Simulated scan of single mutants.
Amino acid sequence: MKRTHLPLNGLRVLDAAARHLSFTRAADELAVTPAAVGQQVRALEDTLGVVLFRRTTRGLELTPEGEAGLAPLRDGFLQFEEAVRAMQAGQTSKSLTIAAPRDLSEKWLMPRLAELARRDADLRFALVSADTAPDFTEANLDLAIHWGEGTLGHEGEAIESAGMITVERPGGGAEAAIAWPGCPDHERATIRVADAGLAIDAAAEGLGRATVPELLAARDLAGGRIVATEQARPSRRGYWFIAPLPQWRQKKVQALVAALAL
């Protein structure tokens, strides 16, 4: 069944004017001018084809037609408020769906999510592997992490990092260059692997040297599994938190981004 178009602004003005029986006091409540209240009431009367108010020597009073619709109107506004609260409840929930590249999830994201979960037992995470640009129109995502030079047209912020770093097995390994899609000199590399995480693992096994995001290598470097052959150097590419504006505005997303950025 086709729904009737509801003149919500006019109905809101009607409610305020009926409660105060004064266009001036209704205007004060709604932060508009009395003239604007009068215009909204006249437009609503034209739309409905009824007279809602009459001016008398005692002031403004509702007509029987206006009085007849007032109770269900106010019930409707209460239901609108309940609907808004129900929709906003999702912002305070602690269940999030996150898309990220597999290697970032393994080496950076999951350890941090585990620490957050230890601190807050109500947190719930669903992780989705996304090695290409995430499609928010098809996936029920709250947040994605993307490797590149920007936010892909979404809202977002860069994850702080020292840039790129070259690593190898402690004590040295083979001289071969280990490459992954998106790294420098990928086509000329001796050994190619699917992602930067596998490049780190290959370097740790002594297969060669890999130039990878410092963010990804940090835990393996700290644990002594690999060593750096030089200082990290800045890179135009990096990891970004991204989401369309409605998802980005969610309190739970902003809280997660702030916690992960520490």
Rank of each mutant, 00 (worst) to 15 (best):
R3F: 03
R3K: 13
L8P: 01
L11N: 09
L11G: 06
V13T: 15
A16R: 15
A18D: 08
S22C: 09
F23E: 11
R25A: 15
A26I: 12
A26R: 11
Q39C: 00
A43M: 14
L44Y: 05
L44D: 06
L48R: 10
V50L: 12
L52N: 08
F53S: 10
R54E: 14
T56V: 07
R58P: 00
E61A: 15
E61W: 02
P64Y: 07
A68G: 05
L70G: 08
L70S: 03
R74E: 09
E81L: 09
V84Y: 02
T92P: 00
S95E: 13
P101Q: 11
R102T: 12
R102K: 12
R102G: 14
K107Y: 13
K107L: 14
L109H: 01
M110D: 06
L113N: 11
L113C: 10
R118M: 12
D122R: 15
L127S: 14
L127F: 07
L127D: 06
V128H: 14
A130L: 04
T132Y: 11
T137G: 09
E138W: 03
A139S: 03
D142Q: 05
L143D: 01
A144H: 02
H146R: 02
W147K: 05
W147F: 13
W147H: 10
E149N: 10
G153F: 03
G153D: 04
H154K: 06
S161D: 15
S161F: 07
A162I: 02
M164P: 00
M164S: 08
T166R: 07
E168F: 00
P170N: 06
W180V: 10
R188H: 04
R188G: 08
V193Q: 01
D195N: 14
G197F: 11
G197A: 15
L198A: 14
A202L: 01
A204E: 07
L207N: 13
G208C: 05
P213G: 10
E214R: 12
G223V: 11
A228R: 08
T229I: 12
S235G: 06
S235N: 09
R237L: 11
R237W: 01
R237C: 04
P246Y: 13
Q247S: 11
R249H: 02
Q250C: 10
K252R: 15
V253M: 09
V257K: 07
V257P: 00
A258R: 14
